[in-house]
Nucleic acid binder design. Structure first.
Length: 207
DNA sequence: CGTTGGATTGGCT
DNA sequence: GCCAATCCAACGC
């Protein structure tokens, strides 16, 4: 059964590479301004922290990343590529600048509303990707700082946590590519593209 | 103050 | 596989 309790602050106040796999299988619930209830099951996450050249917090606190340096359990939303939002759960202790990027999820409730926002009904195209997830759930700049442990517009529930996680390199970064800080539920069809996986056949072959 | 390029996506070749 | 879309934070001068 699904556990509707929220995770504890203590659970999130750990290092991001520990929290990231532990979030898999948890539920993210979203209440839209018109009170539509949406929910998804997290299936893919990535860890970031201040020692990490790929992290927004690497060069210290700024106006943009301030939420990352606050207490665990808040939502850090950033805007990128001129058109996309991505959402993170702040982890660790205040001042550490660590967070977990929510990369992909399985749609559970409010699928019709998600499909409308996304412009497609294909379940695999609703939340499989960090920017897709945000668009489906209506997460934007103004949602940064929301309290996922005590808030009423968006929060986490324990859900049906995954027994195992697979790990591999993070997606779309230039620095610290060697850190295997991407985590996903093995075999889950809602994991986003770009899976590392074993030996994908490449189009670029030597002659 | 000007430049660069990004924790992405979707459409076209 | 390749690249445009489209904003703006971070960095260099």
């Amino acid at each position: 059964m699904t556990d509707r309790r929220r995770p504890s602050a203590r659970f999130l106040a750990r290092a991001s590479p520990d929290v990231a796999p532990a979030l898999l299988g948890m539920t993210l619930v979203r209440i839209l301004p018109d009170r539509t209830r949406l929910s998804v099951r997290l299936v893919e996450t990535e860890a970031y922290d201040q020692t990490d050249p790929a992290s927004h917090s690497f060069r210290g606190r700024t106006e943009r990343n301030a939420v990352m340096f606050g207490p665990a359990g808040h939502l850090y939303v950033y805007f990128t590529y001129g058109m996309h939002f991505c959402a993170n759960v702040v982890t660790g202790r205040a001042g550490q600048g660590s967070a977990v990027l929510l990369r992909a999820a399985e749609p559970l409730e409010g699928i019709e509303a998600m499909a409308e926002r996304r412009g497609t009904a294909d379940p695999r195209l609703l939340c499989s990707g960090p920017a897709r997830l945000c668009q489906a759930l209506g997460i934007e700049r103004g949602d940064t700082g929301e309290d996922l442990l005590g808030g009423k517009r968006i929060w986490l529930e324990r859900g049906s946590r995954a027994p195992t996680a697979e790990k591999g390199p993070r997606v779309g970064i230039r620095h610290a590519v060697e850190r295997p800080w991407r985590f996903w539920i093995p075999g889950d069809r809602f994991v986003s593209r770009g899976r590392p996986g074993p030996a994908r056949r490449s189009a670029a072959r030597p002659t």
